[in-house]
Design a protein around this nucleic acid. Structure first.
Length: 890
RNA sequence: GGGCAAUUAGCUCAGCUGGUUAGAGCGUUGCAUUCACAUUGCAAAGGUCACUGGUUCGAGUCCAGUAUUGCCCACCA
């Protein structure tokens, strides 16, 4: 007899089993056994090297791994390409913060570029090591031989290539425009990197000077030193006469302000005075108005967050707040300020550095999203739209399918609002922009490596651009840069190698919070570079929250370390907790009790196996479906077949939670509670037990890979569980076995009640003549009654007489049972219900037939309406047939 | 201001294209347990599917409106 532990011990099994998987080489699709014509590839969203994995990562790993293990079992060439992300700003910000804690006041100044980069690299490498270890702990079956990093040599080469191509196509340009500037981080950030917060502000109403004809209102008086216009609504009678005029105003700036009165329909006449002071240098809207009206741009705030010389001697060098106070004082002193109100204001803050960003005009690198791509007749924006609507290049097989569907609306809305993407950053950790400036002639050379000499003047006084690229630039290339782009494009421009084998990737999962950051950028980059979509299906998962529905966050201190949970309850229990009871796109709560319950389930499965493996005569694999010799056998095999079909269906549709529900119901309720109990009485079920167990292990494997593989070790199998063949039943019938069985259960239930009420003597044998035929749905409960009975030794149910007419019968516990059909207690009720429903639908059919028989209707109604009605009719008729069959079966 | 979602048992959540008497896990209550499993078993209680209308032979499911909650976007200076 096998010796198997009483309880499953994940600590003992997990590391050993992961190593076994790794050693097998099966994480690499090239090593998978058998012919595998179809591929299934997943790019792992690379975790940032800013620290360790959190629960969200654990969720992602679980989802991805469940998907890939399922596909691997299904015989696909399945691969997860793993990797990590250098996360430019995020990582540098984190390391700088740490250094400041250690007492270095200004890390950039004190350490300099090289030394600081060294520190960050050290931190990143350390982080990477931890992250990889943690991913392994989660059981994720990714192909480590293809491990990538957004900042490694290959990915850097890809980044440079793409930048250069975009530059040559005129999509990347260098331009002087207003940017979002984090004074604290001393870097730009893109529109998406802003987090809007509401704060209290003062709203001032005043005149520029005493000669100015009317008042304006603002929350940023200090920026008024750089105003070059006032915008009013063209319909506003108060100001109509001024439109087109230019006034000069003395506000104390370096030069007199020349204020042109311009008309803009966007100006709300009812807000403030209805006149808006336009500061092109320090507000995006104002900047856009300046572009339209050809206005001067006067920066009065510098990148250091202090007032510039343009602001005038009184203000230059002051911080923004100090300048504001001073300017307001100036207005008060001169009787120019007429109102000061408290209002709520929305401001953008840097998501990484946390400070309120200043809008400042600067020369930066941009990606033009509206310009036509040479030879494509489309802009990048168009490509991004096409990918989720008509398909890339109008090819319907190149449509990205987003689950849940409504996120595609959000995506489209984002594209509509998309402006040119500012891609240069002034931080140091990241891909340096491959652009060289000639100090002698000012030539700009775009090149991957430092050119020997200037292409224009021939001198070699070249300096590389100091800036680095937005981290999402490299992330956008992820699906193809990890598959060997650009080497894997041959001379004819055809894909070869991994790129051919696995791109477009099959499936992608991500949280909705990076839909714009990442998904959108991947679509942009991939459709542009490869003229292909990056992935066919995107599964959007929700966010995990704590027990009270709060977000997990460092500041709240409610974080849960997934590794700790895995250590305590086992990785399988953790995985099951993350994936069950959730649905795509919706947030879910995570709490310990849930994990505990799943730990219990994992243990249950372990014990089911323990029971089977220790009680069978010989542990062996059963290839062919065993023959059912009793009703119970027939029933459970039928249930299993149904499970195989339905679990497969749900998994194909990425309904992970539904699949686990089905599996759990079968495993615990049908198989353990019920069939195993019967097997203790009805003997000789070794084959069926082993057959079901084997299949159950495969079906469960995508979700709880460790325990299933651990149990599998007891089979004398020639290969790992992870590469077995996914069972696929062609069909399951609800056939007679199912019905008969539920009837038998009902009988036993009735007898038990009669005994309990002393209507029959407990020891007396009974002849079954009728049944309390309630409802098949109660089956579950009734099955457990059987189990209860199974423990009563003296119970015997027989009908030694001849088999009654109009009866069904079968063998339970080795006892023959016959049930008279005519005595069904609930037959009348059921008949009534069915009759009523049939009648209802028949009425409907008559209505429909009348409608379709009406020539007028058929002639006048649109084709699809008629077709729809016909479909409804067929549907209804089918239902009647089904119901009538049911009625007959009673 | 614009948009997207959610509202189902005490709690956390499922419920696919409308079709038997709306489900699970946890929790609660009672009972059992030398049996593979106390990380157990059995049973019970617990729901006008937010509200109001509509479509339909039939609505938790589709539509409209209301309320509440959450999220995203946005230049009210």
């Amino acid at each position: 007899m096998k010796d198997i532990n009483k309880a499953y011990n994940p600590q003992e099994a997990e590391d050993r089993i992961y190593k076994k998987w790794e050693d097998s080489g099966y994480f690499n699709p090239d090593n998978l056994p058998g012919k595998r014509p179809e591929y299934f590839s997943i790019s792992m969203p690379p975790p940032n090297v800013t620290g360790v994995l959190h629960l969200g990562h654990a969720l992602e790993n679980t989802i991805m791994d469940a998907a890939i293990r399922f596909q691997r079992l299904k015989g696909k060439k399945a691969v997860i390409i793993p990797g990590t992300d250098h996360a430019a700003v995020a990582t540098q910000a984190r390391v700088e913060k740490n250094l400041i804690k250690e007492g270095i006041k200004d890390p950039r100044k004190e350490l300099g570029r090289e030394a600081l980069l060294l520190k960050i690299r050290e931190y990143a490498e350390n982080s990477k090591t931890i992250i990889i270890k943690q991913i392994k702990k989660m059981g994720t079956s990714c192909d480590w031989s293809r491990l990538a990093y957004t900042f490694d040599e290959k990915r850097s080469a890809a980044v440079n290539k793409v930048f250069i191509k975009m530059y040559n196509d005129g999509l990347v340009y260098r331009g002087y425009r207003v940017v979002n500037w984090s004074v604290k981080g001393q870097s730009t950030c893109s529109d998406d990197e802003l987090v809007h917060i509401e704060r209290d502000a003062k709203f001032y109403t005043f005149k520029y000077d005493k000669d100015f004809p009317f008042e304006i209102s603002t929350t940023r008086p200090e920026t008024k030193l750089g105003d070059t216009a006032v915008a009013v609504n063209p319909k506003d009678e108060r100001y109509k006469k001024y439109i087109g005029q230019t006034f000069t105003a003395n506000v104390g700036a370096k030069e007199l302000l020349k204020i042109k009165i311009i008309a803009d329909p966007e100006v709300d006449p009812n807000f403030g005075t209805g006149a808006l002071g336009v500061t092109p240098a320090h507000a995006l809207v104002d900047y856009e108005m300046a572009q339209k009206n050809n206005l001067a741009i006067i920066p009065v705030i510098g990148p250091d967050g202090k007032m510039t010389e343009e602001a005038g001697n009184d203000y230059a060098g002051l911080t923004v707040m100090a300048a504001r106070e001073k300017f307001v004082q100036h207005l008060k002193d001169n009787g120019l300020l007429s109102k000061e109100e408290d209002i709520k204001q929305n401001v953008g803050t840097s998501d990484r550095f946390g400070d309120v960003v200043e809008v400042i005009p600067m020369t930066q690198w941009w990606i033009n999203v509206n310009k036509e791509i040479p030879g494509r007749k489309k802009s990048l924006k168009d490509l991004m739209r096409d990918a989720v609507t008509i398909g890339n290049n109008g090819d319907k097989s190149q449509i990205i399918n987003i689950t849940p569907d409504h996120y595609s609306k959000l995506y489209m809305q984002w594209i509509d609002n998309l402006r040119d993407w500012c891609i240069s950053r002034q931080i140091w950790w990241g891909h340096r922009i491959p652009v060289w400036y000639c100090a002698d002639c000012g030539e700009i050379i775009v090149s991957e490596n430092k050119p020997e000499k200037c292409t224009k003047c021939g001198l070699n006084n070249l300096r590389q651009d100091e800036d680095t690229l937005d981290t999402w630039f490299s992330s956008g290339l992820w699906t193809f840069s990890t598959l060997g782009w650009p080497e894997n494009i041959d001379a004819k421009g055809k894909k070869i190698g991994d790129l051919k084998a696995f791109h477009p990737t099959t499936w992608m999962q991500m949280g909705y919070e990076i839909l714009f950051f990442w998904m959108a950028r991947m679509i942009l980059m991939t459709t542009y570079i490869l003229e292909e979509i990056p992935f066919k299906d995107v599964y959007i998962h929700g966010m995990l929250r704590d027990k009270n529905g709060q977000k997990f966050s460092k500041s709240l201190g409610n974080g849960i370390d997934p590794i700790e949970v895995a250590n305590q309850f086992g990785t399988d229990a953790l995985r099951l907790s993350l994936i069950s009871g959730t649905s795509a796109g919706n947030d879910s709560r995570f709490y310990e009790e849930k994990v505990e319950g799943n730990r219990n389930f994992v243990n249950k499965l372990w014990n089911i196996s323990r029971f089977i493996l220790t009680s069978v005569k010989e542990i062996k694999r059963i290839d062919k479906k065993p023959k059912a010799s009793t009703l119970a056998d027939e029933w459970i095999l039928n249930q299993l077949a149904a499970l195989e079909i339905n679990a497969n269906k749900e998994l194909e549709a990425s309904n992970f939670s539904l699949a686990t529900d089905l599996l759990r119901a079968f495993t615990w309720n049908d198989f353990a509670d019920w069939y195993l109990e019967i097997s203790k009485i009805e003997k000789d079920k070794d084959e069926i037990l082993l057959y079901i167990l084997e299949r159950l292990l495969i079906l469960w494997h995508p979700f709880i890979p460790f325990v299933t593989e651990a149990i599998w070790e007891n089979f004398d199998a020639d290969d790992l569980l992870m590469v077995q063949v996914w069972p696929s039943s062609a069909k399951a019938s609800e056939g007679t076995a199912f019905k008969q069985f539920s009837l038998i259960v009902d009988i036993i239930s009735l007898i038990r009640n009669l005994r309990a009420e002393n209507k029959i003597e407990p020891a007396k044998k009974v002849n079954v003549r009728m049944i309390g035929g309630k409802n098949a749905k109660l089956l579950k409960d009734q099955l457990s009654i059987i189990q209860g009975l199974a423990r009563i030794e003296n119970l015997e149910i027989t009908d030694k007489g001849e088999k009654p007419a109009q009866s069904v019968g079968g063998v339970v516990f080795g006892v023959e049972v016959y049930i008279l059909m005519e005595g069904l207690v609930d037959k009348a009720k059921e008949t009534e219900r069915l009759t009523k429903e049939i009648e209802q639908i028949k009425n409907y059919i008559v209505t429909l037939e009348k409608k379709l028989g009406n020539q007028e209707f058929v002639k006048n109604a649109p084709k699809e309406v008629v077709a729809g009605e016909e479909e409804k009719l067929a549907d209804a008729k089918g239902k009647v047939v089904k119901l009538e069959e049911q009625l007959k079966g009673l």
